[in-house]
């Protein structure tokens, strides 16, 4: 196990360095931050001063080497816009995004697994067909459109929920969170549902497919023959076996939820990392863009590692193969 983790960590290191080059050169090619930052009325002299102050007068390879040197010391650069460490800005926004992503994931699992099992157990009932049709909509409707429609319905027409923004926050385990008050949850509800729709559809389909496959297996038939109650068969024998692929996929998808909650955050003015990224791209705040992407790379590497470990716990065969290898 240790050797496995060490090997994975080394692979991860290579991935991170490679990505840093791709990200840095990609961002370098786009636009000139000074054109966005400086007022129209500034003259050439002021422009050049600003370019030099941001270190943009140096050639690409020097800029990249400087970035690598600082990054090795844990400094991913200062934001052009806020003049604060980019990493700090992102970390400041992280709890909001995590909160949103976790709630979305929770919704997807809590709602998706029962619905998927229902559809799998009684594939020909009308309810199951309705669930499956609904899941197609969940896949195919664009997030921003659904978000705006939800806003129109629940905030403007019905007036049940606040339209945008995050509710009041309190400190919980050292992080600013908003789900501790009713007002906060009301703000969280719409963006979380919006973000979860796609994952919900995914969970329903995975669960249904898993259920359909497992239900015909011999050990289920054997359990039935033994006279075990069908609720125990479904909740223990069936559920445990269909969870393996779901955990794998959700693990990877959680990274996606965190990294790409951008659309939902932008539509609902949710002050998370995604909104920061979009604002930073608009203002060409290169250090923040680079730091964000680097962090996402890091996040995915960690999640993959965790999923591998979890997987081996859930399925002993994986562990054995890994040990032999």
């Amino acid at each position: 196990m240790t050797a496995f983790i060490i090997r994975r960590l080394m692979q991860a290191g290579v991935v991170v360095v490679l990505m840093s080059f791709i990200v840095f050169s990609g961002v370098f090619l786009v636009g000139n931050p000074v054109d966005i930052l400086i007022s129209d009325e500034a003259d050439e002299e002021d422009r050049e001063r600003a370019i030099a102050a941001l270190g943009l007068d140096k050639p690409f390879h020097i800029q990249y080497l400087l970035f690598l040197r600082n990054a090795a010391q844990g400094n991913l650069g200062d934001s052009f816009i806020f003049e604060e460490p980019a990493l700090l800005l992102i970390l400041e926004r992280m709890p909001a995004t995590f909160e949103l992503a976790l709630f979305a994931l929770l919704l997807a699992v809590v709602v998706g697994i029962p619905l998927g099992m229902l559809a799998g157990l009684r594939p020909n009932s009308i309810t199951s067909k309705a669930i499956m049709t609904g899941s197609i909509l969940g896949f195919s409707l664009p997030t921003f459109w659904v978000g705006i429609m939800m806003m129109m319905l629940f905030a403007v027409i019905l007036g049940w929920l606040p339209s945008t923004g995050r509710g009041p926050t309190t400190t919980f385990l050292g992080m600013e969170v908003s789900f501790t008050s009713w007002k906060g949850i009301r703000h969280l509800l719409m963006p979380a549902i919006n973000l979860s729709l796609f994952k919900l559809a995914l969970v329903i389909r995975l669960t249904r497919a898993g259920t359909r496959e497992v239900i015909h297996q011999d050990y289920i038939k054997f359990a039935r023959a033994k006279g075990i109650s069908s609720s125990r068969i479904i909740l223990v024998h069936l559920l445990k076996n269909i969870l393996i692929p779901i955990v794998t996929v959700l693990g990877l998808e959680f990274g996606g939820l965190v990294a790409f909650s951008i659309v939902t955050e932008t539509v609902f003015a949710w002050p998370g990392m995604g909104k920061l990224l979009i604002d930073s791209i608009g203002m060409l705040d290169r250090p923040v863009i680079v730091a964000y992407l680097m962090m996402i790379v890091f996040l995915f590497v960690v999640i993959n590692l965790v999923v591998d470990i979890l997987y081996s716990i859930l399925d002993p065969r994986v562990r054995l193969q890994e040990m032999k290898a």
């Binding site: 705006i148 905030a155 403007v156 945008t164 923004g165 539509v267 604002d279």
Partner: peptide
């Protein structure tokens, strides 16, 4: 002052009374 960059969301926030 709240910062709502998305245009439909800004209009919706006004219509919803937020």
């Amino acid at each position: 002052f709240r910062f709502i960059k998305s245009e439909p969301a800004r209009t919706a926030a006004l219509l919803a009374g937020d």
